[in-house]
């Protein structure tokens, strides 16, 4: 369990010079150090004050591998502006109820991350004694600002497919 959930989605924000080969140069270290490239957002029309092109890369890797990737990027001269979970500024806690183990729980969690760019920050699981009964889990996700709705849509989609009930927080009501 711990080994599998250790693989997390990380966001790296880079600033590249507007020159041929720069993007490829930046992606090399990711593959070399065992990172799984999830998405690249290349904001070509949007320049930084110093005339560079901001690029956002989502990478799936264990924390150790991710650290090595960031080190390698910096060593090859790529300007790494932000790395890791700092940008996950919103949290979302949901409960899942259903045959969680039988429907491949680790697949469920990794699909939450893959499809929503949210990161699973904490998992508490209570497995039912009797296999015919439903198990329950509490999942805390870290999501990018303003993206919790999208994360929730993804969770519902995956859950519906696996016949898992999602209990989501009430939003908009009085928190206290």
């Amino acid at each position: 369990m711990s080994e599998r959930t250790d693989v997390r989605a990380h966001t790296v924000r880079l600033e590249l010079d507007d020159e041929p080969g720069e993007l490829l140069n930046a992606l090399g270290p990711i593959a070399e150090h065992g990172g799984n490239l999830l998405s690249i957002f290349h904001e070509r029309g949007n320049r930084t004050p110093r005339g560079r092109i901001p690029v956002e890369v989502d990478v799936e890797a264990t924390p150790e591998r991710f650290d090595r990737i960031v080190d390698a990027l910096r060593q090859t001269g790529v300007n790494v502006v932000q790395a890791g979970a700092e940008r996950y500024s919103e949290e979302l806690t949901v409960l899942l109820i259903g045959h969680l183990i039988e429907t491949d729980f680790s697949d469920t969690l990794s699909r939450f991350e893959r499809c929503s760019s949210a990161s699973v920050a904490e998992v508490s699981l209570t497995v039912a004694d009797d296999a015919t009964d439903a198990s329950s889990a509490r999942i805390r996700l870290a999501a990018h600002a303003g993206e919790t709705d999208r994360a929730l849509d993804t969770i519902r989609e995956v859950a519906t497919e696996k016949d898992i009930t999602v209990i989501s927080p009430l939003t908009g009501g009085d928190a206290v």
Partner: peptide, 24 residues
Amino acid sequence: EIPGAALQLAAEDGQTIRLIGEVV
């Protein structure tokens, strides 16, 4: 379909479950 365990998991996080109706 809500097992007692789900309410306990919620309580560990300072939360609980209620049947909420919304018109929004």
